[in-house]
């Protein structure tokens, strides 16, 4: 592929790191107490990205579907775990449910996009599959943790209301309907918001990346549109799946709300 971008040398990397000194200086001057966090975050970001660069380079050379699948499962597990880690309540199968819903949605949407839409030369083509999956996962993770957190908090705070509906003859589904709807809405808001202002307020990272790497803006925009649709579908599917699974985990078949299965974290 012909490219016309300027590669970044180690010196340039170091120079960019100097930008963080501005934040650290501000934090110190205004006594925000963020210096430590900023150091740790910067350090983690650099190490993680350098490592992932190496790993991806290695995976791209392998061209073995099993390895690609392994890397993808690893990424999905990480997303599943971190989605739950941001919630304030847990139930027993929550990690498993989170992993399952992200796996189902992200894999479906990513394979459809790579094979059905982009039509990559290889069905598992890591050059397409892995970056796309990463983007779908990142957004699905946010949607999952927002929706899950909202759902469990609402169940706890609206317990009287939900049980009042149950006593009046509502099925568990009818009694939870409003709570489910609010949770799904909460999970989808960031995706919808970002689509609304796309290109006006924000220039998406992937598109800017392609442009910096020498692609023409009108080409880059086309890729971006495909990816945004994939991200939106992935987030919607994950959010719905995790909320339905959580619903079945917290309401039993006797149409009872089982709040004792929810544990507060810390």
């Amino acid at each position: 592929m012909e490219s016309s971008y300027i590669p970044i040398s180690n010196t340039q990397l170091a120079l960019s790191a100097a930008l963080i000194v501005i934040n650290i200086g501000l934090s110190w001057a205004l006594r925000l107490g963020l210096e430590r966090q900023l150091w740790i975050a910067s350090f983690r970001m650099v190490v993680q990205l350098l490592l992932v660069g190496l790993v991806l380079q290695w995976v791209f050379t392998l061209r073995d579907p099993l390895w690609v699948l392994f890397v993808m499962l690893l990424m999905t597990s990480m997303a599943g775990i971190s989605a739950v880690n941001r919630t304030r309540r847990r139930y027993r199968s929550i990690y498993w449910n989170s992993f399952l819903s992200i796996l189902l949605a992200a894999f479906t949407v990513t394979s459809l996009t790579v094979n059905g839409i982009i039509q990559a030369p290889l069905w598992y083509d890591p050059q397409y599959f892995i970056p796309l999956l990463g983007m779908v996962l990142g957004n699905a993770l946010t949607g999952t943790s927002l929706a899950l957190d909202r759902f469990m908090e609402d169940l706890a705070s609206r317990r009287d209301q939900i049980e009042a509906l149950l006593t009046l003859g509502a099925t568990r589904w009818e009694a939870a309907h409003n709570t489910i709807r609010d949770a799904l809405r909460t999970g989808m808001i960031p995706t919808i918001n970002s689509m609304m202002v796309m290109g006006i307020v924000s220039l998406p990272g992937m598109m800017t990346g392609q442009i910096l790497a020498g692609a023409s803006p009108s080409e880059a925009v086309r890729y971006q549109i495909v990816i945004i649709f994939a991200i939106a579908a992935g987030t919607a599917l994950t959010t719905i799946t995790i909320i339905v699974l959580s619903f079945y985990a917290l309401f039993n078949s006797s149409h009872q709300l089982c709040l004792e299965r929810l544990q507060t974290v810390r």
Partner: peptide, 13 residues
Amino acid sequence: FLPRYRTQVLYLH
């Protein structure tokens, strides 16, 4: 079927 039962044996909070 619990929803049906609950409308006949109705609990008030």
